[in-house]
Design a protein around this nucleic acid. Structure first.
Length: 449
DNA sequence: ACATGATTTTC
DNA sequence: AAAATCATG
């Protein structure tokens, strides 16, 4: 078996439960591992925001560095490059006599374009690709329906999947990796090198998110086992302050530092050893939403990016740049909205409750084009995931798959419910810290200095 | 050079 | 579906 393989890491920056890596190890005599920073991911969005902002870029850099470290600890090497993966991989394959390239497929067109360009380039060299699906809890091939027949209502999808599909077992984490070629390892780029500034730490942040597989596994272990918080997840998940109210696994899931099947496995273990209740189920339920948006992206392709969304529902949007800017910096005058937006700008993170509210506010109160909001989230959210982001924005904009049209969140009512003492508002808008909570919650047109 | 229609792109 | 880009007479 004189097979020389290359494993191309993408949004799967881990060694556990990695089918492409597992297959490559089983089918090859020699293996090369590569991560390529795609230069196209570091340009500007139409709105002028960097496509990959500082929080995301930092998390990605850390994730790649930790993957390299984990590979080296096992006797291997992770090559790191910057450029176009379809060219860089083809060049490496040609120069080093690689016979197969292994990778996980993505669900959206930019990524699929790179896959097909790579496939073509490799085909011309007589190199084959071995492609896998590895980003969802339920495997694409295990769905009880075709992608074309994917239900447009989440609950229908969930019920069918829960009834008829099974989560596949994990692939084992390799203990030894070898490195065969005398080839430059390559440097992991710095934030500065990517033209981005270093994010300043903020003591008010819910927690410190550090990229990397071991950091993701550590957070999973801490949340479920050490702090024993899974059993109350459903009751606390609408919180706003601190590390404990929710799992906070999304940044690691988005970059593939954590496999959703690994999360599932730990939840099942917890249910067997400690307790199974609505809360333990609810974490799986949320993973299903993540799956759903990924399959929706497969079903509808680029329609998730369209102005009128996957429904093709005509709706006119405002292009009031000033109103949008006020939303971005957290100066709309609506304290609950502004506090959330300031948290996002300062930390790259916002609670799920906050996200639903600020998105509803932009779309339904300001009537601003939902795509502007989606772009801003894309740039700054540390857990940005193209399918979840655009799927959710379609949903709030009323052009996605929400059976209830135009789901509106009343920010005053939401503040009264979820921030009754205005602790969260005061935390992020310090100029209001001496205000009476009731007055803050009822305010809707504050002027900040 | 340019209007018009076709094609491509939309993160 | 709409906007942007491309092709062509």
């Amino acid at each position: 078996m004189a097979q020389r393989s290359l494993v191309w890491f993408r949004n799967d920056l881990r060694l556990h439960d990695h089918e492409a890596l597992t297959a490559a190890l089983a089918e090859s005599s020699d293996i090369l591992l590569l991560y390529c920073f795609d230069e196209r991911q570091f340009g500007k969005l139409p709105s002028g925001f960097p496509k990959t902002g500082k929080f995301r870029a930092k998390f990605l850099i850390e994730s790649v560095e930790h993957l390299r470290q984990a590979v080296r600890e096992r006797g291997g090497e992770l090559l790191v490059r910057m450029g176009k993966p379809e060219q860089i991989i083809a060049d490496l394959a040609g120069a080093l006599g690689i016979t197969s390239v292994y990778f996980h497929q993505e669900a959206t067109s930019e990524e699929q374009y790179v896959e097909s360009a790579l496939r073509q380039n490799l085909n011309a060299l007589g190199v084959r690709t071995r492609e896998f699906w590895g980003s969802t809890l339920y495997h694409k091939s295990d769905l009880p329906m075709s992608i074309e027949a994917l239900p447009d209502v989440f609950t229908n999808f969930r019920k069918q999947v829960e009834k008829h599909a099974q989560v596949r077992p994990l692939f084992p984490t390799p203990t030894r990796l070898k490195h065969f070629a005398d080839v430059e390892a390559g440097e992991v780029p710095t934030l500065q090198g990517l033209g981005l500034e270093e994010p300043q730490p903020d003591v008010r942040a819910v927690m410190t998110f550090k990229g990397g597989e071991s950091q993701g596994l550590q957070r999973l272990h801490e949340y479920i086992w050490q702090k024993d918080l899974l059993k109350t997840y459903k009751d606390t998940r609408n919180g706003l302050i601190g590390a404990d109210y929710s799992s906070k696994l999304s940044p690691w899931l988005a970059n593939g530092c954590l496999s959703p099947r690994k999360v599932y496995e730990e939840v099942k273990k917890y249910e067997a050893q400690r307790i199974a209740n609505d809360s333990t189920y609810w974490l799986i339920f949320e993973l299903l939403w993540r799956d759903y948006f990924r399959f929706i992206a497969l079903k509808y392709g680029n329609r998730i990016f369209h102005k009128f969304g996957i429904k093709g529902k005509p709706r006119e949007w405002s292009h009031d740049r000033e109103a949008f800017e006020r939303w971005v910096v957290g100066k709309t005058g609506q304290p609950f909205i502004d506090a959330n937006m300031r948290e996002l700008a300062a930390t790259g993170f916002m609670s799920n409750r906050g996200r639903q509210n600020v998105a509803s506010y932009l779309v339904h109160d300001l009537n601003v084009d939902w795509r502007w909001g989606a772009e801003y989230f894309e740039s700054v959210l540390i857990d940005y995931d193209v399918c979840s982001n655009y799927g959710n924005w379609n949903y709030v904009a009323g052009i996605g798959n929400d059976p209830r049209e135009d789901r509106y969140f009343n920010p005053k009512r939401q503040a009264a419910l979820y921030d009754p003492k205005a602790e969260f508002i005061k935390r992020w808008i310090p100029e209001l810290s001496s205000w009476d909570a009731k007055r803050l919650i009822e305010a809707d047109s504050l002027e900040y200095t």
